[in-house]
């Protein structure tokens, strides 16, 4: 499913159409961000909600919007972009259309690290466990890559997937063992089993923002390399790409992005899996465009799902991870069906 055709020299016309659609999508994202600031369990009139950004008078409404909904919106945007972009990179690297953070044991690693930290240090606030989630995500990504890289051929797609499955199983058993032994760890894990944006405020955002921003900026520059790698190992090498080094660098980027995303709001399924496919559907196989579209559509999906989760239950909310899971499964099936029809 990854691109096999040589990238066609993009005509000016096609480029401008893609750019136009991307611009429209970005406009949609901005609209969703505004909705995310104005909609929620607390009733605030839409214009009143936007006025708090120009009017410094302190009020409960201003606190809710500036300090609760704003960081939440920004985290959703950053996490959505990070997951979608890293999903696109992983699918290319692993030559596997089903690759995402879950397949590589990254979520499992983050959860295991949080549970271990709760077991060793007792339960802690989100801003503390973020670091452990990050550590766990990073460590598993490195472990998967190193295990897969052993041997003559290096980190081939199949070896990456197998190493990911192994590490996921290992982390899963560590988590289960500790959770059975220690109620503190169970309490902590509950928050990390399903991704959620509620209860995350500026401290969490400022902790993960540097990683998200740097990771995203660098990722958006990898389009050319990904295009060349998608030509196949031999051709890419023939065109002057040092494939081993390129893969290692891309993997490091994925570790940073997924680690920060998982640390910020726990495991979120489907964004990394589905958004790159949707992007590819719109743009064709050019990774420069796939990455750019992923960086816009990922946040849009996160925000949309989060807003729905805030509104369906009166007085409470459904975690964004659950909403995306529920909406994502049928959407993904449709997408795959549609793509198959196109490819046939």
């Amino acid at each position: 499913m990854t691109a096999t055709a040589v990238v066609p020299p993009a005509s000016m016309a096609r480029s401008s159409v893609r750019a136009g659609v991307l611009l429209a999508a970005t406009g949609g994202l901005v609209l969703l961000a505004l909705l995310s600031l104005t909609l929620g369990s607390r009733d605030v009139a839409p214009f009143e909600a936007l006025r708090v950004f120009t009017d410094p008078t302190p009020s409960a409404d201003a606190t809710v919007i500036r300090e609760m909904r704003l960081p939440r919106t920004l985290i959703a945007i950053g996490v959505g972009a990070a997951l979608a972009v890293s999903g696109a990179i992983l699918q290319s690297l692993a030559r596997n259309p089903l690759a995402d953070a879950g397949v590589f044991g990254i979520n499992a690693g983050a959860a295991a690290a949080v549970v271990v930290s709760a077991f060793v240090f007792g339960s802690m606030p989100v801003s503390g466990s973020v670091w452990f989630a990050f550590l766990g995500a990073g460590a598993t990504t490195v472990a998967v890559y190193v295990i897969a890289a052993v041997g003559r051929e290096g980190a081939t797609p199949v070896k990456l997937a197998l190493a990911g499955v192994c590490i996921t199983a290992l982390c899963g058993s560590v988590t289960s063992a500790l959770v059975l032994a220690d109620p503190d760890a169970l309490e902590e894990l509950r928050m990390w089993q399903v991704g959620a944006l509620g209860g995350r405020y500026f401290p969490v955002l400022t902790q993960v923002a540097p990683f998200l921003v740097i990771g995203l900026v660098l990722s958006l520059c990898t389009g050319r390399i990904l295009n060349l790698l998608s030509l196949g190992e031999d051709l890419a090498r023939g065109l002057g790409v040092r494939t081993g080094a390129a893969r290692a660098g891309l993997f490091a980027l994925v570790a940073v992005l997924c680690g920060a995303a998982t640390a910020a709001c726990g495991p979120i399924v489907f964004v990394g899996l589905m958004v790159p496919h949707a992007a590819r559907l719109i743009t064709g196989p050019d990774y420069r465009w796939i990455l750019a579209y992923s960086a816009v559509l990922g946040p849009a999906l996160m925000l949309g799902a989060d807003i729905i989760g805030r509104l369906v239950l009166p007085g409470g909310e459904i975690p964004v991870g659950v909403v995306i899971g529920v909406l994502g499964a049928p959407a993904f099936v449709l997408l795959v069906r549609y793509r198959n029809l196109v490819e046939l």
Binding site: A60, T63, V64, M68, V126, P203
Partner: peptide, 15 residues
């Protein structure tokens, strides 16, 4: 005191 810390972390607590 965990529940008091949780409330303290939520900005609305200032209201």
């Amino acid at each position: 005191p965990g529940n008091e810390d949780t409330l303290a972390a939520a900005p609305i607590s200032s209201s």
